[in-house]
Structure formats: structure tokens, C-alpha cells
């Protein structure tokens, strides 16, 4: 396993309650692993904790990366081990050029330009348009997200955490992003995909359902998605959108059983 999260508990800053409650799951190397759950279930907290942000210290539990206990490590150490995060709303650091921003995590300084161009191409940004641009207010939200993704990919990390990469994007763009995720996977990078959208999760091999801070199930993604719909009581939605017309192949009896288990008719 590339990533192992064991009994991870994250308290609120005042320590009065928990955001993540003894969460455990594993991520296989080379896979796309989705973390799904409704708003407020602790998905972004999990992403920040794995990345090692200062305000996200576990009160209990461990995180292992390639067998190494990274729990006490700082964000920079984790990044240098091969973990990075593409942020849900990346900051607009006005004044930096796009190539400069992408170059920050590139280790192969000798082939910097080629590496930057390669990263831009992976996220479908034309190098001829973006090699001379600055990060400023004229960059759209979608372009900024792609630049963030390019910077993460350029690092050639082993694990790339994508925190809600779909937020604020329209449907056509989301389709494109799903293709980009598959391209990243083909480059031998493992993706931990944080999302609350079932359609973007379709690219995932595996998933974990977070529900009010608990990890309820880790399994193949369709089964996790089905459990999510059952928890939310969305049977018709589930049948209509996820498991019909070229969606996931799960028979209706199985769907009915899962819904019954969750106390939903």
C-alpha cells in the first residue's frame, strides 16, 4: 500500500469535538482513490491532515506513506517524500509568472523548460498561450485550477491529493478534468481524489465514504457510491444516474439490499 491511514482522529481547535473519528483506509499505488461524502463530512480536513498542515494535527492515529510513519513530519518533508496537494481554491499569488509557479517543485533543473511545457500539456493548457502569462486576475478560475494541477504534476509526486478539483467548474470542463486524471494515473502517480460529486468520482478505482467524520466503507468505487446513495436515501437518483445507461454495472437486487441495510426502502 502506498498510503495507510490508521485510526486517525482530528479534534476541532477547541478540542471539544472531532472532525475525523478513528478514520482508517488504505490507498493502493497507481490507483485513483476517491474520498466521497457530503459537505462537512471531513474530506478536506483529511486532505490537509495527510499533507501535514500545521492546524491539522491528529490527536490519535497514524499515517504511513510507503511504510514510513509520516505523522510527525512537516509539510515540506512530506512533499519531499513525494506527496503533494492541489488546492480546492488555489491562492492567486499575483506577480508570479505561470512558468515560475510551475517550476517551484521541479527537481530536474536542467530540463526545466521542457518539464514546464510537459506539465502544461498534461492539463490541456497551450504552452504558447501560458508560458508568458502572469498569475493575475485575468486568469479564470478553471485556468488557475489547471495551473495548480500542472504545478503539482510537474513535481512528479508519488501521491497527488486533489481537493475538490471540480468545484466551480462547468460540466464540459469536468469531463476534461476526468481525462486529465486518467493521464496523471498513466504517469504512475497515485491520486487521492476528494470530491462530493458522484460523476467525477466515476474515474476512481476505489473509494472511501466519509460520513460525519466516520469512514464507513472502503471498497471498489461503485460499491462505495452505492452506499453513499443509500445513506442519503437517494434510491431513484442512484438508479437513474449511476447504475443505468452505461453507468456502473450493479444489478437492482443488490441496490435494493444495500438500501435495506441502511434502513431505506
Amino acid at each position: 500500500m502506498l498510503l495507510e491511514v490508521k485510526n486517525l482522529t482530528i479534534p476541532t481547535l477547541d478540542q471539544k469535538c472531532v472532525i475525523l473519528n478513528k478514520v482508517s483506509f488504505e490507498v493502493k499505488e497507481g490507483s485513483i482513490h476517491a474520498i466521497i461524502g457530503p459537505n462537512g463530512s471531513g474530506k478536506s480536513t483529511l486532505a490537509y491532515t495527510i499533507m501535514g498542515l500545521d492546524n491539522y494535527k491528529p490527536s490519535e492515529g497514524k499515517i504511513y506513506f510507503d511504510g514510513i510513519d509520516i505523522t510527525p513530519m512537516k509539510i515540506t518533508e512530506r512533499a519531499n517524500l513525494g506527496i503533494t496537494l492541489a488546492w480546492q481554491e488555489p491562492a492567486r499569488i499575483d506577480g508570479l509568472s505561470i512558468p515560475r509557479y510551475i517550476s517551484l517543485g521541479i527537481k530536474d533543473k536542467a530540463n526545466m523548460k521542457e518539464e514546464i511545457i510537459g506539465a502544461l500539456k498534461i492539463v490541456n493548457l497551450e504552452p504558447e498561450r501560458f508560458m508568458n502569462r502572469i498569475i493575475d486576475e485575468f486568469l479564470s478560475g478553471g485556468e488557475r485550477k489547471r495551473v495548480e494541477l500542472a504545478a503539482a504534476v510537474a513535481m512528479k509526486p508519488r501521491l497527488i491529493i486533489l481537493d475538490e478539483p471540480d468545484s466551480g467548474l462547468d460540466m464540459i470542463v469536468i469531463e476534461d478534468f476526468m481525462n486529465i486524471f486518467n493521464k496523471i494515473k498513466e504517469l504512475d502517480m497515485t491520486i487521492l481524489l476528494i470530491t462530493h460529486r458522484e460523476d467525477i468520482g466515476m474515474v476512481a478505482d476505489y473509494g472511501t465514504l466519509l460520513w460525519r467524520g466516520d469512514a464507513l466503507i472502503t471498497d471498489e468505487f461503485p460499491k462505495v457510491m452505492l452506499r453513499y446513495c443509500a445513506k442519503a436515501g437517494l434510491k431513484e437518483f442512484c438508479k437513474r444516474t449511476l447504475f443505468k445507461n452505461g453507468g456502473f454495472c450493479v444489478d437492482e437486487d443488490y441496490i435494493d439490499r444495500i438500501f435495506r441495510e441502511e434502513g431505506q426502502s
Binding site: 512537516k74 517551484l104 517543485g105 527537481k107
Partner: peptide, 24 residues
Amino acid sequence: KWLDELQAKGLTEEEATQILIEAM
């Protein structure tokens, strides 16, 4: 958050600060 974003790319806090000064 800006420092975190840059540190997640492998920069130390000092290096990240320097980059932000450069940008500003």
C-alpha cells in the same frame, strides 16, 4: 495558506516567503 501551498511543493518556509516577496 499561501505558505502552505508553496511548502506542499517542497519549499521550506523561508523559501516560500522569498517566493512571495518576489511575487509581491
